[in-house]
Every structure is written in C-alpha cells, then in structure tokens.
C-alpha cells in the first residue's frame, strides 16, 4: 500500500518536472525550421554539361535530359531526395538546396526544368 502511494508521488513529481520545461515543438507556419547545412531538399541545377552520370545513379528515374530544347528536368513526383545525383555530379552542377516546402497547386509544376547553358559558354 505504502509502496503504491510512494510510486504515485514519485511519478507525479516526474510528470510535473517535465510539465514546466520549455516546449520542444515549433509553431510551424509562423516559425520555420531552419535545416542544417547538408540538408537534402529540392534539387537545384546550374550550368549542367549534360554528361548523364546522374541518370545512371538515380534509383527512381526522376531525371530526364531534353537535349533538343537544352532542358534538364527533374520530376519531383518520382524524386526520393536520396542525393545520389548531387554526390556523383563531376562538376557539382546538381545541388540539394535547403528548400523543403514543395507543395504546388498544379501537377505540372512538380516537374522542375532548368536550362543547360554550361556547354555553350565553354565553346
């Protein structure tokens, strides 16, 4: 009996101890989480030369290279944000940015297309 009362008092003490600590949650739309340096968010492409190495390491086939229109397309519906394309890119053209709010109101906007200017400027 006394053991049970002792347990009750102890557990209430622990619960109250935790009750008066600072909240650990974030009020999201007002306060935004700042991701760390290596965060793998929305992929961003600049000055792509079109070597096609990222196509060979992408697990989900999210990347297509449109050589006629010189466009580098990433389908965010397929992308799993593994970061393989950025890691194996020999010119660091593909980078994973810190952006994580990727909701859009149109399905077509989920396909990101970036211009591939790099090769022309060099020639």
């Amino acid at each position: 009996m006394f053991k049970k009362i002792g347990y009750l008092l102890l557990s209430m003490f622990i619960v109250f101890k935790h009750l008066f600590k600072r909240p650990v949650t974030l009020e999201y739309p007002e306060k935004k989480n700042i991701p760390p340096e290596n965060f793998r968010g929305k992929p961003v492409v600049e000055n792509c030369l079109g070597c096609g190495i990222c196509l060979r390491v992408c697990p989900s086939g999210a990347i297509t290279i449109d050589r006629e229109n010189k466009l580098y397309k990433i389908d965010l519906k397929k992308c799993i944000f593994c970061g393989n394309c950025a890691y194996y890119c020999p010119h660091s053209a593909v980078k994973m940015s810190k952006e994580y709010e990727l909701g859009v109101d149109n399905r077509e906007n989920l396909v990101l297309s970036y211009p591939m200017g790099g090769a022309d400027e060099r020639n």
Partner: peptide
C-alpha cells in the same frame, strides 16, 4: 511524448550528418 522528445535529438543529429532524418543514404 518524452520518448519522442529524446529521439528527436538523435534524429536531428542524423539530419546534420547525413542530410535527412530517417532516409539517411
């Protein structure tokens, strides 16, 4: 809630090191 709070410390560390919380790669 207590257990998730402590787990969050570990997951935030994973995020710093690998870039994501659970799908680390």
């Amino acid at each position: 809630f207590y257990a998730f709070r402590e787990r969050e410390l570990i997951l935030q560390y994973f995020e710093k090191v690998s870039g994501q919380r659970m799908m680390n790669n």
